[in-house]
Design a protein around this nucleic acid. Structure first.
Lengths: 193, 193
DNA sequence: CATAGTTTAAGGGTATTTCTTAAACTTGTT
DNA sequence: AACAAGTTTAAGAAATACCCTTAAACTATG
């Protein structure tokens, strides 16, 4: 069962007991998502925390020129959500789109709040989960303000080797904040070395 | 008392009851910090969560050329810490330095863990606190990958007007990921408009 | 409380990085 | 097979860094 993956995801933190497991699996819904299908679109309120069982998503904003800017990727065993929109019930500026055919588990806000209220362990576990995501994001900001595009690309390859195989370079360029043409040039430079 | 500021900080989340307040104030230490004094230096393990009562700090990394890159500022009623170093007990790559004479409250890891274990509300409150910081950081990443230096500067002024008065432009440039000279040019451009 | 020392801001010139545009080519999808 | 999406190349333009000078604004302390 795909809920097993979610249960054992929590083994990386404080493992769930029987009651918590049951409460959790009764409050998530499994969905199959096609490639290019959206689970969040701009101006919609983000209503779910999404846990990826298999597949790959990108979360991005579209600027006034229509250019996409990738804020985050999420693959197996990762959570993805616009948590600003989710918690404030306000329209999102972001899209979340499947890059590969995917299977996900989704939890609505009222259900997450139920878990938080009745089982403090979820507060704890999600605190630690988001602390880790925060650290990751802090490193990314540091890279962005201190490194050249080529260094950022190398770091991306080192840090997410599996992702770099599953994503087209256009998507990686968008994540790094550079144009696909310039990434192509960087790759050419690296090859020559 | 400066601990009152900390207590009422939590009123923005789930307010603390009498026992929680007492547990909290018994586990923090107040310190006066001089301008330019460090509360964390590279290669030291970050041993405290620091809550700023008054004053202003910058957290930054120093690259191989000796250039500082500001990851974060923290003023009144904000938490600052290298949480990666703090939780993993590993040497930090960051400095936290007072930009102004400051008063802080510091909590050691064992005390924070005590609060987490005995009063679930702290898990909850720190989860929400870090969720908010995560959202802020996500917005900054989006800015970094999608906007010009001038746009980022304008956003900074709009978002942190008080900070922009208390910080020299060199520090703001470092936060934005540009050179002080280029920020000076940007300011010149803006004036002309 | 004055002055020397340090930090900050601004300006100009040149070098480097990165973007823009456009076209050709390759690969993947239906 | 046909269309869409992704990659590469190249030339010129724009954004930004780098280096240096000068002047102004702090700040420490004799």
């Amino acid at each position: 069962m795909s809920t097993d993956k979610l249960i054992s995801h929590f083994d990386n933190y404080l493992p769930l007991d029987e009651k918590e497991r049951e409460a959790l699996i009764n409050r998530v819904i499994e969905k199959n998502i096609r490639r290019r299908q959206f689970i969040l679109q701009e101006n919609d309120v983000c209503r779910h925390y999404t846990f990826v069982i298999s597949g790959l998503f990108k979360m991005y904003a579209v600027d006034k020129n229509g250019t996409e800017h990738n804020l985050q990727f999420a693959s197996e065993n990762e959570w993805i959500s616009d948590i600003g929109s989710f918690h404030a019930d306000k329209p999102s500026r972001l899209y979340i789109e499947a890059v590969e055919p995917s299977v996900i588990l989704q939890m609505e806000k009222q259900n997450l709040l139920y878990l938080y209220t009745h089982f403090p362990k979820f507060d704890r576990n999600f605190r630690v989960i988001i602390e880790n995501k925060f650290i990751e994001l802090e490193n990314r900001v540091l890279q962005n303000i201190s490194s050249t595009a080529e260094e950022r690309y190398q770091t991306f390859l080192d840090q997410y080797p599996q992702l770099s195989n599953r994503l087209p370079n256009t998507q990686i360029a968008s994540y790094l904040g550079i144009t696909p043409e310039f990434l192509s040039k960087i790759r050419n430079n690296i090859t020559k070395k």
